[in-house]
Design a protein around this nucleic acid. Structure first.
Length: 457
DNA sequence: TGAAATGTTGGGGCG
DNA sequence: ACGCCCCAACATTTC
C-alpha cells in the first residue's frame, strides 16, 4: 500500500493539476493536505485569508464527493508534514512548485527533511526556461514575450480525477470562520464559470474596455488564478481556442498579453529576488522619499481629494479588488504626487488584495514607481484628472465608490474643487467638509516628483 | 500601459 | 490683393 501526500499551497484545484496527477500516479491512496503556516499571520491577510478559507471549504466539499477528504493542519510545515508522514506511512510528498523567496526557503527546509517532489504548474513556462541567447534572464517585457510566445505550448489538459481512494481520517483542525466575498464566490466551479462568462461576453471587447473601470471590461479572474483555482495552462489554452473558433483576434491577444505579464513578473522575482527588498535598478535606491504617515493614511483611506484615486482606494478596501487602471493611477499618485516610498503602497496592496501575490504586486509597483525592470520612465506621471476624464468619462466609477460625490454634476465630478459655491450647495456637497480638497496641487506635485527623481536618475 | 512644453502650419479676420 | 496677427489643430520634443 503506497501512500502519497498531496501538499496543497496555491493550487486549490482538482482540474489540470500536475502535482495532484503526479501524486495519484502509482499511489494506492493520496492524502490531500493544507497547512496554515504559522509564520503567516492571518490578520495581515484580511480579505485574502477569508477567500482562502472559503476556497478550502469548497475544495473540501469537492474532495468529499470524490470519496476523499482534506486534512487541515496549522504550524510549521516541516513539523506538520513530518507528523503526517509518520501517521500515514506516506513515502512521498507532491506539491506544486512555487518560486517566491519565502516559498523557496520553506520548500528547501521541507525537502531537506522529507521526500518532497516539486511539480511545475504555477506558470505555463517555468522560471529559467525563457532566457536570452546567453541564457541570462530577460529584464524587458517585449523580448521576454517574443521568446515566451516562440516556445512550444503544451495544451495538454489533465482531467479531474473521477474518484479518489479514501484515506484514514488523520486529525484535522476545523477551518476558521469566514464568509463569502460577494464579488468573488470561492471554488473551482465558480472560477470556471467566470472564465466562460468572460470569454463569451467581454473578451472580444477586451482591448477596448479593459482600461475602463466604469465597465465590466476585465476578466476578474485574478483571485482565482492567484490561488490556482484555474491553471494558467488551461486559462491560456481557453483564450487561444476561443480566438480560433471566433476568428476574432484583437481583444484576445491583448488579454493573452496580460497573462504573459504575470509570467514575466514571476520569472523576474525568481531571477532577482532582491526586488522584494528595494528597487530593481540600484540607482533608484536614492529617491528622497517623503516620510509622511499622515499623507500615507490619507491615501489609504481614499481621502486625497482626487476622485478617481479615492474611488480606487475605496474599491480595494471594500472589496479586496481594484481595477487595473485604478491600480496604476493610485500607485503613481502615491509614488509621484505624494513622493512616498512605493514599498508602503506595495505592502498596503498585499494586505488588501484577494489576488495579492508578491511577484505581480511587486512588478506592478516597481513599474509604476519607475524603479523596475521594464518600468515606466520616471518622468511619466499620470495626471489624475486627465486619466479620470479619459477612463471614467461619465464619472460612474467615481460615483459608485464615493457616495459623497454621487450628486455632483458631470462637469465637476473629475475635479470637484472647481465647483462654484452655488453648485456645491445645489448638489449638497461642500468641498473641504463633505469631500476633501486636493491633498496636493497637481502641477506643483509633478514638479516636486520630477526634481526628486532627477537626483537619483 | 503620459503629459506638458514647444514648434509648425494654415485658415480667417482685419487694416 | 496683401501682409500681419491670432490661434486652433496637429506634430515634435522634453520632462
Amino acid at each position: 500500500m503506497t501512500t502519497v501526500i498531496w501538499w496543497i499551497r496555491r493550487d486549490l484545484r482538482l482540474h489540470d493539476n500536475p502535482a495532484l496527477a503526479q501524486a495519484l500516479a502509482g499511489a494506492d491512496r493520496v492524502i490531500p493536505v493544507y497547512i496554515f503556516d504559522s509564520r503567516l499571520k492571518p490578520e495581515f491577510l484580511q480579505e485574502r485569508f477569508l477567500f482562502l478559507v472559503q476556497s478550502l471549504k469548497v475544495l473540501q466539499a469537492d474532495l468529499l464527493t470524490l470519496g476523499s477528504s482534506l486534512v487541515i493542519r496549522a504550524g510549521d510545515p516541516v513539523n506538520e508534514l513530518s507528523r503526517l508522514v509518520t501517521e500515514s506511512g506516506a513515502g512521498k510528498i507532491c506539491a506544486e512548485a512555487d518560486y517566491s523567496p519565502f516559498a523557496l526557503r520553506r520548500d528547501e527546509a521541507v525537502g531537506s527533511a522529507l521526500p518532497l517532489t516539486l511539480v511545475h504548474g504555477l506558470t505555463i513556462h517555468p522560471p529559467g526556461s525563457v532566457v536570452k541567447g546567453d541564457s541570462a534572464p530577460y529584464t524587458i517585457f517585449t523580448p521576454f514575450r517574443n521568446t515566451w510566445l516562440s516556445l512550444p505550448l503544451d495544451d495538454y489538459e489533465i482531467q479531474s480525477p473521477s474518484q479518489m481512494q479514501p484515506h484514514q481520517i488523520l486529525s484535522s483542525i476545523p477551518l476558521p470562520d469566514s464568509h463569502e466575498n460577494p464579488l468573488f464566490p470561492a471554488g473551482e466551479a465558480a472560477a470556471h464559470h467566470r472564465l466562460q462568462e468572460f470569454l463569451k461576453s467581454s473578451l472580444s471587447r477586451y482591448d477596448l474596455d479593459r482600461d475602463r473601470p466604469d465597465l465590466e471590461g476585465t476578466s476578474r479572474l485574478s483571485p482565482y488564478i492567484r490561488f490556482g483555482q484555474l491553471s494558467m495552462r488551461y486559462v491560456y489554452a481557453q483564450g487561444v481556442s476561443f480566438a480560433r473558433s471566433s476568428g476574432e483576434n484583437s481583444g484576445i491577444s491583448s488579454w493573452l498579453n496580460e497573462l504573459v505579464w504575470r509570467e514575466f513578473f514571476i520569472h523576474i522575482l525568481a531571477a532577482f529576488p532582491h526586488v522584494l527588498r528595494g528597487a530593481f535598478r540600484p540607482n533608484l535606491h536614492a529617491v528622497p522619499w517623503r516620510d509622511s504617515t499622515a499623507d500615507l493614511q490619507t491615501w489609504q483611506a481614499g481621502l486625497t481629494g482626487y476622485p478617481l484615486v479615492d474611488a480606487g482606494m475605496r474599491q480595494l478596501a471594500q472589496t479586496g479588488w481594484m481595477h487595473n487602471r485604478a491600480r496604476m493611477i493610485t500607485a503613481s499618485f502615491l509614488a509621484k504626487h505624494l513622493l512616498i516610498n512605493w514599498q508602503a503602497g506595495e505592502e498596503w496592496f498585499m494586505r488588501h488584495l484577494l489576488d495579492g501575490d508578491p511577484a505581480s504586486n511587486n512588478g506592478g509597483w516597481q513599474w509604476s514607481a519607475g524603479t523596475g525592470t521594464d518600468a515606466a520612465p520616471y518622468f511619466r506621471i499620470f495626471n489624475p484628472v486627465l486619466q479620470s476624464r479619459k477612463f471614467d468619462p461619465s464619472g460612474d466609477y467615481i460615483r459608485a465608490w464615493i457616495p459623497e460625490l454621487a450628486s455632483v454634476p458631470r462637469d465637476y465630478v473629475h475635479e470637484p474643487w472647481l465647483m462654484p459655491l452655488d453648485v456645491q450647495s445645489a448638489c449638497g456637497v461642500r468641498i473641504g467638509r463633505d469631500y476633501p480638497s486636493p491633498i496636493v496641487e497637481h502641477a506643483a506635485a509633478r514638479e516636486r516628483a520630477l526634481a526628486a527623481y532627477k537626483i537619483s536618475a
